[in-house]
Design a protein around this nucleic acid. Structure first.
Lengths: 335, 335
DNA sequence: CCTGTTTGACGAAACGTTTCGCGTCGCTAT
DNA sequence: ATAGCGACGCGAAACGTTTCGTCAAACAGG
């Protein structure tokens, strides 16, 4: 592997000059610049990122931490992120927190030790003093994705959950649904809280009283939903529509309905916040919100790069990306 | 950030001694060892991985390159891999080749520059002299996953595709199917080639003549399958069963059937090599092979670590992980 | 013509480790 | 006794960069 010294020798200049030409950090005469570039090409020199990192104290790597990469949403995020960053010459360290705050913090520290230039985190948002602990652990430019924290310490990009809830409720309302079940996730997770709040608000707006016995919380694992939906559907006066908050819930709900011999949309309408897209060919095709992951990734990358380059607006920003409603066949009109 | 010098000062020993105690590379008396460890704890010292990498010429990071992380299979692989490696103190750089050999090679070079300790690659397996080029580009311990190359230059872990094909064909045969359509992928991709070969071989074994007009190749995009399945089903004498080789094909097939107003298993049986698991609650639930991704990851990690630690068997090894057949409801018996 | 400033180039220090080679001490075998 | 050897500890070099401070030359203004 050719080193900068080889280049210097070859171009008959000092190491300093080679570094200066490459990085443009100091003025170099055109004549020497040419000699240096030629020499670089001739010896096939590539700067050693490790040495560079050591000296500069910061790398050209960004770290991505998600709860679970095997969730399609997270996988798409990782893909878009990686594309966005590789285009500007950054590469990506990756880790799963497995929704465990301890793992999450430990990964953050590992990444920090590796001197990542920035961090993209889908925070677990759990545990005592989570937010404070995060602020105290992170000393790198960071952008939070999907879940936002009550305190705005970090730039964040998330879905516009209030808008999404509004779309869902209005759509169901238009179809004549009044008895709507809502399965909320863990309280304290912003995406769940916001979706529930949006549900309540839009129900109010449409003038329909919420039947509180149809609002269940917390339901965040597949099996919770599996059980909950069966409770809901065996009530004296079951809901005519069920709102699912994420994929796990949706899968549990469908399985639970199946177990009761029920199906959507004939026996009950099902709609979901998180998209699920084998779509055509399977029934039922689930009517759901489609999150704009590409935009989310791009915005997050932009925010992060601005911080890294310090061109930034000092105030942490929250960007909300609007979803779109994909109407398929899991909801039907009722009298 | 505390440095090794701080520890040395605190413990009143030389830097060399501190390094020796930490790494066990040279004998240190118990008394000093104790002093050093105490000092480490007191100043909260953590070795700087960057500096270590620079000096040792190799990092504690491994690189993962997959064609597309948003494919569930790849996402699961990434998850298992990351878990396996983080347990032994390695972290993971990640990149998508987007099935483009140029990107793939470029990522390999970037990772090499970062001095990864090893590489896990799902090779694109495309382009001229692919195998030779790979050998020439890679100078790090490497294990190939999913797709194997004709020349055994690298350790590889892959599904036992011949066995899988055998399971599928025997199952269909038992249900009475004789007119079986097979959509192969790109020729030259080992997984596709092996599956096709296994199909042919087992058909021979069962004594059923293959209707060559039902074997289509190449069909590797969703839209190919969408078109192909409609051709197949509008033939004078359509197949009674269709074998799909991967998810993209399966999705296209289901959509294509839907477009013709047909459905599985009533009009035709559908079976797939790659598992697809929303499963319960949706119809049809696809009968498919389940790949043992956990085992695949573990084996790959083991192979790679053996190479890295040089405990290894000099000969590159190919490990084949057997799949299992998950019988659901997309296939039915025929007369 | 002198002073002050800018431009261009360089040597050497620094980043935080690991490792090479050397020196000292105490022990054992001659 | 003393040569030889192992165990232990240390200083300094090395890894490949970037950057600081210095310096010579060229150039501007008075």
């Amino acid at each position: 592997m050719a080193t900068i010294k080889d280049v210097a020798r070859r171009a008959n200049v000092s190491v300093t000059t080679v570094s200066a030409t490459i990085n443009g950090t100091a003025p170099v005469s055109d004549a020497l610049k040419a000699r240096v570039w030629a020499a670089i090409r001739e010896v096939g020199y590539q700067p050693d990122p490790i040495a560079r990192n050591l000296r500069k104290g910061v790398s050209t790597t960004i770290g991505l931490i998600v709860p679970d990469i095997s969730i399609p949403w997270a996988a798409h995020l990782a893909k878009s992120m990686q594309r966005a960053f590789s285009e500007i010459g950054y590469n990506m360290l990756f880790a799963s927190s497995e929704d465990d705050p301890e793992r999450e913090f430990s990964e953050i520290e590992v990444f920090s030790a590796h001197r990542v230039a920035g961090l993209v985190v889908v925070p677990t948002s759990r545990g005592e003093n989570y937010s404070a602990r995060l602020v105290e652990t992170i000393h790198v430019p960071t952008v939070l994705v999907d879940r936002v924290l009550p305190q705005r310490h970090f730039d964040s990009v998330t879905d516009d959950n209030l808008l999404g809830a509004q779309m869902i409720v209005r759509y169901l309302h238009k179809l004549g649904h009044r008895d709507i079940a809502f399965m909320a996730g863990r309280a304290g997770i912003s995406s769940s809280d916001e979706r529930l709040a949006g549900f309540r608000r839009t129900m109010d707006e449409t003038g329909v009283a919420i039947r509180e016995e149809l609002v269940r919380q917390p339901v965040y694992l597949r099996d919770h939903a599996y059980a909950t939906v069966q409770q809901l559907m065996t009530m004296r006066d079951p809901p005519t529509a069920i709102v699912c908050i994420n994929i796990a819930q949706l899968l549990g709900t469908m399985a639970g309905l199946g177990n009761l011999g029920l199906s959507a949309p004939d026996d009950v309408s099902v709609i979901s916040f998180d998209g699920f897209h084998p779509a055509e060919g399977w029934s039922p095709a689930i009517t759901s919100l489609k999150q704009d992951i590409a935009t989310t990734s791009t915005r997050a990358a932009e925010l992060l790069m601005a911080r890294i380059r310090e061109e930034n607006q000092p105030e942490p920003q929250i960007i909300r990306v609007p979803p779109s409603l994909q109407i398929r066949s899991s909801c039907r009109a009722v009298a």
